[in-house]
């Protein structure tokens, strides 16, 4: 029941210190786990297994799965490329107003995703200030495109990467970079050869969180990108629409989403543990 970690103490007598978890931790921990696991297990029970293969291989389902994977990966890459540097700025720079900037970055976590999608629409929609410019200069209309799906997903997923990475950067501290600098490394070399390897686990777990969030994204997508098979209908959108008249199909596809998410988490977890440190 309890996990006892025994290690040699630093004390002069060489005594052992027991780091058992205090008992009040266990009950809420079990409740918390149950709250997440039991409904998902219910999904498995509720699945129409004899027709499962047919339900998840319809044209619409395959289109949606492919689109979800494609846009989810693209959004995660964008989160890395844009959010990584943002995390560095938040953790390592001393520009004024950092606490304010940090709270702005967290806003997509607080905003209902539909509102996030609407704000994107106000900015990039046909009558939005940026949308009008894009349309006039390049003839680009952003809403209702696959790009709009990626933008919506990146919007909601970004904080997950930034927060994880900023935490990792703060925990790691700057001492190795200081040493590298005294040995003559340029800031860019120190970033590439020291900082990134040190925070790699944080970078990976942040990316996984961002990918998972992008994969499950619904509200911002439907508000900003619409719903059209093959173009903007990701798996969560299809699941929502199916749930209104074909629950079996919705449940089966939800299970596919769960499996994809679990696969990604497990794959990165094992790399995390065996690869780094």
């Amino acid at each position: 029941m309890t996990r006892a970690v025994t290690r040699t103490g630093r004390g002069s007598r060489g005594s052992t210190v027991s780091l058992a978890l205090p008992w009040p931790v266990w009950v809420p921990a079990v409740v918390a786990f149950g709250l997440i696991a039991v409904p998902v297990a219910g999904l498995i029970v509720r699945t129409d297994w004899p027709n499962f293969a047919a339900l998840v291989t319809t044209d619409a389902a395959l289109d949606a799965l492919w689109l979800s994977l494609k846009t989810g990966l693209t959004s995660t890459a964008l989160c890395l490329v844009l959010g990584g540097p943002l995390a560095l700025v938040l953790a390592r720079s001393n520009i004024p107003g950092l606490p304010f900037l940090r709270s702005v970055v967290l806003l997509p976590l607080v905003l209902p995703p539909v509102v996030g999608g609407l704000t994107l629409l106000f900015l990039l929609g046909r009558t939005g200030p940026l949308g009008q410019l894009l349309n006039a200069w390049f003839g680009i209309t952003v809403p209702f495109s696959t790009e709009a799906v990626v933008i919506a997903q990146t919007f909601v997923a970004m904080p997950f990467l930034v927060v994880s990475l900023e935490g990792a950067l703060r925990t790691a501290g700057e001492r190795y970079e200081v040493v590298a600098a005294t040995l003559g490394a340029s800031p860019l070399t120190a970033l590439r050869r020291v900082t990134i390897p040190v925070v790699l686990p944080g970078l990976i777990s942040g990316s996984v969180l961002a990918f998972a969030r992008a994969l499950g994204e619904f509200g911002a997508t439907i508000a900003f990108a619409g719903n059209l098979q093959g173009t903007t209908q990701t798996l969560p959108l299809l699941i929502y629409i199916q749930s209104q008249n074909d629950l079996d199909g919705a449940v089966a596809m939800s299970l596919v989403l769960v499996v994809v998410a679990v696969l990604v988490i497990v794959a990165t977890r094992t790399r995390d543990v065996s690869g780094v440190r």
Binding site: L121, P143, F144, I222, G226, N227, L228, Y240, I241, Q244
Partner: peptide, 16 residues
């Protein structure tokens, strides 16, 4: 360009 889950969403796309 979009097949929406309810009529008010369709309407919103026109009003915006």
């Amino acid at each position: 360009v979009s097949q929406d889950p309810d009529v008010r969403t369709v309407l919103q796309r026109v009003t915006t």
